[in-house]
């Protein structure tokens, strides 16, 4: 199916559709009205994310990284500027099942089995029973939880629960995966493993990933693009394109290239704080 937007983008004078940005923000502003007066969560954010990129958002609390992800998801609405997701408004993109969202807490329903939890979006989106079963089997094996479908969430470790919640976000084949500090509550060792798995999953599925994190090593290890943000008001201070190879074993974190990138991210974070 080709909608008018795609036709416009595939015009010979324009860039080919495959290179069109998946997420495009221009001059994005968002001001929350609170009891203590307005709070500017995002100020003049310009960002372009291409298809298949892995983009990390890093910055201190209150820098608007989660808010930006929520704007992309249509959970918050900007007060200024423009944003498009797959060439549509975020709300339309959500209706078109453009993205899967992974929250910091796995948020699995205790009264549903792992398979039942993964099935939840499929039920709401009206997939047939047979389709639900086959998709659940497929995504559970993608996150290496084969055979755990019948277990209840409390029977699984925190890392496994988070993998199940990633499976839930993948189950309906959205081509964008938005992840809000998904591994923030996990210990270092489990986090390393899940980072590795996430890269493998990303390589296997070719999805566009937006990934919010507090951790510099995590951001550098995972990303093709690192967006450094700073608070009050939330804004982008640096966008770093990673030159690390696509193949990334965990010990790449000891190479000079990795350390140089991490250094640049740290400098960016420090610059954002300079005026405090």
């Amino acid at each position: 199916m080709v909608d008018p937007v795609d036709r416009r983008l595939s015009h010979p004078a324009q860039a080919p559709a495959s290179l069109a940005p998946v997420i495009l923000a221009k001059g994005l502003d968002l001001t929350f009205r609170t009891a203590d007066g307005p709070v500017q969560a995002l100020k003049d954010v310009d960002l372009e994310i291409g298809r298949g990129e892995f983009v990390s958002f890093i910055g201190p609390s209150g820098c608007g990284k989660t808010t930006f992800l929520r704007v992309v998801a249509g959970l918050e609405h900007p007060t200024g500027g423009s944003i498009s997701v797959n060439g549509m408004t975020p709300d339309a993109a959500r209706q078109a099942r453009a993205y899967g969202y992974v929250f910091q807490a796995a948020g699995l329903y205790p009264w549903r089995t792992i398979a039942g939890n993964v099935k939840l979006p499929l039920e709401i989106m009206g997939f047939s029973k047979a389709e639900q079963e086959s998709r659940v089997r497929k995504v559970l094996s993608l996150v290496e939880l084969d055979g755990f479908g019948g277990k209840y969430p409390w029977q699984l470790s925190g890392g496994m629960q988070q993998r199940a919640s990633i499976a839930r976000a993948l189950s309906f084949d959205a081509d964008i995966l938005l992840m809000d500090e998904p591994f923030g509550a996990l210990d270092e060792i489990v986090r390393d493993r899940l980072n590795e798995e996430l890269l493998r999953l990303w390589a296997a599925t070719g999805k566009t990933v937006g990934f919010v994190t507090h951790s510099i090593p995590e951001a550098v290890y995972l990303s093709t693009k690192i967006v450094v943000m700073s608070p009050r008001p939330g804004r982008i201070t640096d966008v770093i394109d990673s030159d690390l190879p696509a193949e990334r074993p965990l010990d790449i974190r000891d190479t000079p290239e990795f350390l140089a990138l991490a250094h640049r991210v740290r400098e960016g974070l420090r610059a954002g704080h300079a005026y405090d």
């Binding site: 959970l75 959500r94 899967g100 910091q104 709401i124």
Partner: peptide, 13 residues
């Protein structure tokens, strides 16, 4: 919790 409700919003429930 709010996150639980947000999750369902992302499915346009």
């Amino acid at each position: 919790e709010a996150a639980q409700l947000d999750l369902l919003r992302t499915y346009s429930a």
